[in-house]
């Protein structure tokens, strides 16, 4: 019996914007399906970590493996829910249009979505409680409903690993509950769900395991063992000033030839 490769593996990952590193030498391995929280203060590089895993930002160093393989080989097994504010919600598309986009990575965008894809999309909408709003223009939804549309799009992809960026931000209590129920359902179905979350409240109730991030990985592991006062102190008041200063120094040095 061969040992299954870890679902997600960050190996010494460093990410820089311009030339200034914003995420330093992250080593993180997640082997088991679970609800995994990425927690840390604002500007800690949580979204950047997600984007690094998804190939949306270039790595200044290190590598990411998913299912033991480079991302390009396994893209369709990876679902992504970006931050809600990153898109223009006045964009002229309907809820159904957006959810169907989730099926493109499996069946391609050339072909008109067939009945099977529409069924998947409708079922995904039903799971987030929006089956009645399929034809609505996305701008006419509440913030919580918009977030659930994004989640439904990821569900329609039928991936094995899901990355979600702040899915609970600015969302009403009902949507929050519903989103959490869907995410727990995914975990129970054997999927890995990685959630960026900036708020410390309820972290222990929601996540099986967490990574505490503050421009570097402070700690990672089962939630109760990891969320210690000491780790939290190191995350929220830790070495950020030093790393920030070093980052600026790197930027300055690389500008002068």
């Amino acid at each position: 019996m061969s040992l299954a490769p870890p679902l997600v593996e960050f190996h010494d990952v460093t990410v820089a914007y311009g030339r200034r590193p914003v995420l330093w030498n992250v080593d993180l391995t997640i082997s088991e399906p679970c609800l995994f929280g990425v927690v840390g203060p604002n500007g800690a590089g949580k979204s950047t970590l997600l984007k690094a895993a998804l190939g949306l930002v270039p790595l200044a160093g290190g590598m990411v493996r998913l299912f033991g393989q480079p991302l390009e080989r396994v893209r369709r097994r990876v679902g992504y829910v970006p931050q809600r504010e990153t898109v223009d919600w006045d964009f002229p598309v309907s809820v159904m249009d957006v959810v169907l986009m989730g099926t493109y990575s499996r069946v391609g965008w050339l072909r008109r979505p067939a009945a099977a894809e529409r069924a998947v999309a409708r079922e995904s909408l039903a799971r987030v409680g929006l089956e009645d709003l399929a034809d609505r223009q996305i701008g006419r939804l509440s913030g919580g409903q918009q977030q659930r549309v994004f989640l439904a799009r990821a569900l329609a992809q039928q991936a094995d690993v899901y990355f979600l960026d702040e899915p609970m931000a600015g969302v009403d209590a009902r949507s929050q509950e519903q989103i959490l129920a869907v995410l727990s359902g995914l975990r129970d179905a054997g999927k890995l769900v990685i959630v960026v979350h900036h708020d410390l409240r309820a972290v222990t109730d929601w996540f099986d395991a967490v990574a505490l991030i503050d421009m570097r990985l402070v700690a990672a592991g089962p939630t109760r063992e990891t969320l210690t006062p000491d780790n939290l102190r190191r995350t929220y008041a830790g070495a950020i000033d030093v790393l920030d200063e070093v980052g600026r120094a790197v930027q300055r040095r690389s500008r002068t030839p």
Partner: peptide
């Protein structure tokens, strides 16, 4: 006509489109 769905996806949410391998 051929690239319509791709163009709409990219126009609406380029990051998600890239993550989905578009």
């Amino acid at each position: 006509l051929v690239t319509w769905r791709l163009q709409v996806f990219v126009a609406f949410d380029a990051d998600a489109a890239r993550a989905a391998g578009m």
